[in-house]
Write a protein that binds this DNA or RNA. Structure first.
Lengths: 147, 147
DNA sequence: GATGGGGCTTCCCACCGTTGGAAGGTCAAG
DNA sequence: CTTGACCTTCCAACGGTGGGAAGCCCCATC
C-alpha cells in the first residue's frame, strides 16, 4: 500500500505521515524496490489511532506515550487513564485562560457604545490596564522521539 | 531609554520589541549615535497597549488594526467594537472545540477502570473511532504588516 | 517503444509568536 | 584599563501543518 492510500485510509495526510516518521513517532515504513514506502493494514490502524488522538488535542509527545501503552499488551489501564486525565487538565486550563479573556473582553464590549464617536472603553482599557497575567506557557517540548 | 528599560517598563521583552519592529507592527525606533534603539514614554505606552492586547489573545494582525484605530483620533468606536467582537467569537469557537475534546475524553476516562488490568476503553475508542471532525482551521495569516 | 500523467521521493520554505545563543560593539563604574 | 552589563545583528529552534520544486517510478494508452 502506497503512502497515498494509507493517507486516505487513515485520514492522516501523506505529508504528516512522513513527518511522524521523521520525528520518530512511527517507525520507518518498509520500502518497496522502487523506494516507495509500503504500508500494511496494521500501519494504517496505527495511523488512525494517531489521528484520533490528535483530534482530541493530544500533542505528539503525549501520543508517543499513548502509542507505547497501546502496543504494550501488559499495560495497566491506570497508566492510560493518567495520561488522559493529565491532558484533560491541560485542556481545562487552556479553556479557563481563554474564558478569562472572553469575560474581560465581553465586559469591555458591553461598555462600548459602538457608534460613530471615537470614545471607546476598549481602547481606554488597553491603554490603562496594569500588568496582566502573562499566562504561564506550557513548554514541555519533544526534540526527537525514541531511536 | 534603552530597549531593556522599555522592555521592563512595558512588559514586552526586548526580543519581542525588536520582532515587532521587524514585522512592521511598530515603527522603527530612533537610534542613538551608538546605534542603540532609543524609546520615549510614548513608545512604552504603545508597547503596553500591545502587551495588553496580546494578553487578551489578539493576534498580531488584529493588534495592528487596533493600533491603527488607537492612533486615529477620528475613529468610530463601532470599528473597535467590531474587531473586539470578532475576536471574542474566535475565542468562543476555540473554547467550544476544546470543550468538545474535554467532554469526549471525560466520558472515556469515566469508563476506564484505571487499575492494573490492561483493558482500557480509552485505547479501545482510539482504535475504533470513525473519522473525526478534523476541526476547521483558522488560517488568516499576516505576511508582513504595512510599509 | 514512446509519451503522458499521476504518484512517489527528498528537500527547502512558510506560517505564528517566542525564546535561545553566538559574535561583536558600547557604556558606565571601579 | 578592565570588567561586566547592556546593546547590536544574525541564525535556529519549538509545535504541527501545508506548499512547492526537482526528479524518479509506474501504469495505461497509443
Amino acid at each position: 500500500m502506497n503512502i497515498g492510500q494509507a493517507a486516505k485510509a487513515s485520514g492522516v495526510s501523506a505529508k504528516m505521515i512522513r513527518y511522524y516518521e521523521q520525528i520518530g513517532l512511527i517507525p520507518p515504513a518498509d520500502r518497496k524496490d522502487s523506494g516507495y514506502r509500503d504500508y500494511s493494514d496494521a500501519d494504517v490502524h496505527m495511523l488512525r489511532f494517531i489521528r484520533r488522538a490528535r483530534d482530541l488535542g493530544f500533542a505528539v509527545a503525549e501520543i508517543n506515550a499513548l502509542l507505547g501503552l497501546w502496543r504494550d499488551r501488559s499495560r495497566q489501564s491506570a497508566d492510560v487513564k493518567r495520561v488522559a486525565a493529565a491532558h484533560i487538565e491541560e485542556l481545562r486550563e487552556k479553556i479557563a485562560s481563554l474564558q478569562q479573556m472572553v469575560d474581560t473582553l465581553q465586559d469591555l464590549v458591553d461598555c462600548c457604545a459602538g457608534d460613530n464617536r471615537p470614545d471607546c472603553p476598549i481602547l481606554a482599557n488597553f491603554e490603562e490596564a496594569q500588568d496582566g497575567p502573562q499566562a504561564a506557557h506550557p513548554s514541555a517540548g519533544l526534540k526527537r522521539l525514541s531511536r
